[in-house]
């Protein structure tokens, strides 16, 4: 575990609502239990194309990682996962309501989080929290946390990168609580702090002579 003064906890999966309710934004989390990967290919196939999920909630777990692993299927059919790193989550928002209903997940892990608006609309009713990976490049550390690769679903339909990889993990991390049970966002809190200083950095600059159509000039905004 990375040494830090930040509050650090190990979260056992599946987690109850009460356990999740204790987690404040900015807390460092390590996960123990069952998780599964699912990204846009899975969301589209499961929710939009109406295929549902390939296995039961018990078999897949209650925590969905927005990622695809650096993994291979060996010739004897065994599965090998080297490193895992999240992909940016804001792209998944449009499928979320259907996704929570279908998967029953209450922990979503990914990169960069979503907006507090989306947390309040979709996460809060599902009693779900959002964990972000750290630095986004801690793939080797996260890979170490994988105890066993349980299954890889839809690998023929979606390819290795988009397949559902079911993983049993032990003290996998670190992650940070980005969206809490009430829908607060750590990134939005930090963004507000950073925004105050940005104007100063812009002193001594000038806008481009030729503007871009639809250009945004509000430095407090985000692009997602």
């Amino acid at each position: 575990m990375t040494k830090t003064k930040l509050k650090t906890v190990t979260l056992e999966l599946p987690a109850s609502r009460d356990t999740l309710a204790e987690l404040e934004i900015g807390t460092v989390v390590y996960l123990t239990g069952r998780i599964f990967t699912a990204r846009e290919g899975v969301y589209k196939r499961a929710v939009e194309d109406g295929h549902g999920l390939p296995a039961s909630r018990e078999q897949m777990g209650s925590a969905n990682f927005h990622c695809s692993p650096a993994a291979r299927i060996n010739e004897d059919g065994t599965l090998n996962v080297g490193a895992v790193t999240a992909t940016a989550s804001f792209r998944f928002a449009k499928w979320l309501d259907g996704w929570f209903e279908l998967s029953g997940c209450n922990v979503i892990i990914g990169k960069g989080g979503m907006t507090s608006e989306i947390y309040k609309k979709s996460f809060v009713p599902a009693n779900a929290i959002y964990l972000t990976t750290v630095g986004y490049g801690t793939g080797a550390l996260l890979g170490r946390g994988i105890k066993s690769v349980v299954d890889a679903h839809w690998r023929n339909e979606l390819g290795l990168a988009q397949a559902i990889w079911v993983l049993d993990v032990e003290k996998m991390g670190p992650f940070l609580v980005e969206g809490d049970i009430h829908g607060n966002s750590l990134f939005e809190r930090e963004n507000a702090k950073v925004a105050a200083g940005i104007e100063a950095a812009y002193e001594g600059t000038r806008p481009a002579t030729m503007q871009r159509y639809g250009e945004l000039d509000d430095k407090t905004k985000e692009v997602i």
């Binding site: 990622c67 695809s68 650096a70 080297g82 490193a83 986004y136 490049g137 793939g139 080797a140 890979g143």
Partner: peptide
């Protein structure tokens, strides 16, 4: 140490 990719997005 593990000779594994440093990041899962390689």
């Amino acid at each position: 140490e593990d000779r594994r990719a440093m990041c899962g997005d390689t």
